[in-house]
């Protein structure tokens, strides 16, 4: 194939890379140096780092994302592990994927009903004798719904790494005298860590920015980085500050990517 023709193929894709990948990121960084009255300034960053509000909000957001990721992982790993041993696993896997095809807003909306004063959750609590509680618009409900939404995204990569695991490793471990549990924590878990890391990547970063959930379920009590950005862009119209938080979110994203990237795995590919 001649060079010229190859370039022809590349034009639309290259345009996309330039216009919709590089330019927007550059613009958000650029915008973060502008104040409300369009002056170039470092004030946004100064505000971010000096006012405890933003730092606390960031810490809060990271903490919630951490909790959501942790709970998702704790639920998903055993699920993927059991799924792996099933007979019709492709079918069951499809059942895991199916809820991700339901619009996230609809799922959030369902929980507005479930967690409402007279919803099923409270009926259940009444049934087991705890009595109705305020569920909606609490931190716990936010974490619950976020975890619910993220579970499939954690199950899939873990399932894939379990499926890739050569069963001979498990046999070898048993052969050398290890019990099932020893085999799990010495062989299976370390070897499926790349899947867990991929799952963390897929869950943690979006969890920093789930502004619709904080609004619909968290009742604005939880402010995540995403909520703050949305508010600055669409409500207070302070794009400079919004971009600054955006840059913080990008930095957080890069850190998470670095921590969870599987360097050894990549080099061997």
């Amino acid at each position: 194939m001649t060079k010229r023709k190859t370039c022809g193929y590349f034009i639309p894709y290259g345009l996309w890379l330039g216009l919709f990948v590089i330019a927007p990121v550059a613009l958000i960084v650029y915008q973060s140096f502008f104040s409300l009255d369009h002056h170039v300034t470092l004030a946004n960053y100064a505000t971010y780092f000096q006012s405890g509000v933003y730092l606390k909000m960031t810490l809060n957001s990271v903490w919630y994302a951490f909790l959501i990721t942790l709970f998702t992982g704790l639920i998903s790993y055993p699920t993927a592990y059991v799924l792996r041993q099933l007979k019709h696993r492709q079918f069951w896997l499809l059942l895991v994927i199916l809820p991700t095809w339901i619009n996230i807003l609809l799922k959030a909306y369902a929980f507005i009903g479930i967690f409402s004063q007279d919803g099923v959750a409270n009926s259940f609590l009444r049934f087991i004798g705890i009595g109705p509680q305020q569920l909606l618009f609490t931190n716990a409900s936010f974490i619950f719904v976020a975890t619910y939404i993220q579970i499939p995204f954690m199950i899939l990569p873990i399932y894939n790494s379990l499926a890739d695991l050569n069963p001979a490793y498990i046999n070898a471990s048993l052969d050398l005298g290890a019990t099932r549990w020893q085999t799990f924590y010495r062989v299976i878990f370390p070897l499926t860590l790349p899947g867990v890391k991929a799952g963390v990547q897929a869950v943690f970063i979006p969890s920093l920015s789930l502004f619709m959930l904080t609004r619909l379920i968290g009742g604005n009590k939880v402010i995540t980085l995403g909520t703050a950005i949305e508010e600055h862009f669409l409500t207070t119209m302070n794009w400079g500050m919004g971009s600054t938080i955006g840059v913080v979110l990008i930095v957080a994203m890069i850190i998470v990517m670095q921590l969870t990237n599987d360097h050894s795995g990549r080099s061997s590919q």
């Binding site: 001979a168 490793y169 046999n171 070898a172 471990s173 048993l174 052969d175 050398l176």
Partner: peptide, 17 residues
């Protein structure tokens, strides 16, 4: 069970961890 048989295997694809 395998882990209590005191026989060991060299696997076809070695299965080295």
């Amino acid at each position: 069970p395998a882990n209590r048989r005191n026989v060991n295997t060299v696997f076809q694809d070695y299965a080295l961890f």
